[in-house]
Computed example of a mutant assay.
Amino acid sequence: MIAERGPSTVQRLKAKLLRQSSEWDSWYAGLEGERRVGRELERLSPQGWRVLHGIEKGNGGDIDHLLIGPGGVFSINTKNHRGASVWVGDSMAKINGGKPRPYAAASQAEADFVRGVLGRYCAFKVPVEPALVFVGIASLDRAATQYSVRIYHEREVASLGPLTGKLTPDQVEQVFAVARHRRVWLRA
């Protein structure tokens, strides 16, 4: 596990007490954000949704979450920016008015990748949409032209639950069976 390669609990505590930043700080913040979003997604299970977390890709990256259910498949990218003001445009995001970050474009590319992988193994067209979920932020502003990526606060992600009409229960199970096999993603 990657966490085992990072600093020990004692080392992290010492750095925190001395107010020293660590190269692992952002990784741990990201992990905490993913866990929080994961808990929200798990709450959708009673509505027929299946969830996968931390899907490792062959290029060394990962997919934070896949949500598979009656409303289709959502490739979910989680960003933890505690206390920040976030603006999201068509392809970029700005955190506290800073330099543009390609969050929306990366989310769209990830959904395209997921669609291609699942499409190779399913006998039907798999509808995949990108979603970008921000954790711990103070405010979220979406550009009026931003329609290609779903943008949420962590607690808003539950609004995906009532979506229906894209996959039958059998198709949900078929997509989930394919998606949970590690080889599918590592070979892509």
Rank of each mutant, 00 (worst) to 15 (best):
A138R: 15
E40N: 08
D64M: 05
K57G: 03
D64L: 07
R155H: 15
K14Y: 13
S85W: 15
V10G: 02
R101D: 03
I68Y: 08
I2W: 00
I2T: 00
S22H: 09
R12T: 08
L66N: 05
G30M: 08
R150L: 14
E4I: 00
A143M: 12
I2E: 00
A179M: 05
Q171W: 01
D141N: 12
Q11F: 06
A177R: 12
K99D: 14
V51T: 15
G61F: 09
P162Q: 03
R182F: 01
D170C: 00
E23A: 11
V114W: 05
S91Y: 13
A131M: 07
A111L: 09
P169T: 00
S159I: 06
A93Q: 01
R43I: 04
I76C: 08
P102W: 02
G161M: 07
I2R: 00
A3T: 04
G60A: 02
A111N: 02
V178S: 00
N77S: 15
C122Y: 02
R35H: 13
R142E: 11
W87S: 10
G58K: 12
V172R: 02
G33D: 10
Y121D: 02
R19Q: 12
D62M: 03
Y152F: 15
L52R: 11
S21R: 10
H153S: 08
S22R: 15
R183D: 07
E110Y: 02
P127Y: 00
F113Y: 15
Q11L: 12
F134E: 12
L186V: 01
P162E: 02
L163D: 01
S75Y: 08
L44M: 15
A3E: 05
A188Q: 04
V126S: 04
L118D: 02
L160K: 07
A15D: 13
R82A: 14
G136T: 09
S8N: 01
A138S: 15
G136Y: 12
R182N: 00
L13C: 08
V126E: 05
A105Q: 13
V135G: 07
L18M: 14
E56D: 14
G58C: 10
V184K: 06
S26C: 09
E32C: 11
R5Q: 01
W87R: 09
E154S: 13
P162G: 05
I55H: 05
E32I: 14
Y121C: 02
K79M: 12
A84Q: 06
S148I: 07
R187Y: 00
F113E: 09
D141V: 14
V135M: 11
A3H: 00
G61D: 13
L132D: 10
S26W: 14
E154P: 01
L66V: 07
N80K: 08
R182H: 04
E156R: 08
L41V: 06
Y121P: 06
K16N: 09
S107P: 09
K94N: 13
V149P: 08
V135Q: 13
A111K: 03
E23V: 05
P46Q: 10
G98A: 05
P46E: 11
Q174Y: 01
Q108E: 11
V175N: 01
T78W: 09
Q20E: 13
I55M: 12
C122F: 05
E110C: 02
R120F: 06
N59G: 10
P70R: 12
T9Q: 12
K14E: 10
G60P: 09
R19E: 09
